[in-house]
């Protein structure tokens, strides 16, 4: 696997919706070297004969319940922690601009 670049780290951060200082980005690049060495250990294990294990147990869990209203959240609780709310809407800046963008 290729070494990650500072530019790539900033790109990933942008996609994650936060920004990093230059020093942070460089620190992450340096940590990647250690991580890649550790990941190399994974490549020594032959996993060609098995599937991914996503959860500890693979016992199916399904259940049906009666179609009755249950576990309702009061609308005041929905908005209790909202930074900006109005008429039961979360308020954000306009996303679709007037020119259609």
């Amino acid at each position: 696997m290729e070494r990650i670049s500072v530019k790539k780290v900033h790109q990933l951060a942008k996609q994650l919706m936060f920004s990093l200082s230059e020093q942070e980005a460089k620190d992450i690049v340096n940590e990647f070297d250690t991580l890649l060495s550790q990941l190399d250990l994974l490549n020594r294990i032959d996993t060609s004969d098995c599937e991914e294990l996503v959860y500890p147990f693979e016992t199916p869990t399904t259940f049906f319940r009666e179609d009755v209203v249950d576990h309702v959240m009061d609308v005041k609780d929905v908005f209790l922690n909202a930074p900006k709310a109005e008429n039961q809407y979360f308020v954000i800046p306009k996303v679709v601009k007037d020119n259609g963008e």
Binding site: M1, L39, L42, N43, I45, T47, C50, E51, E52, L53, V54, P56
Partner: peptide, 17 residues
Amino acid sequence: NQELLLKKAQRVRRKLV
């Protein structure tokens, strides 16, 4: 990267289990 990283890790998880 999913095949080389996440899925590989999940398969190694099965081996460890």
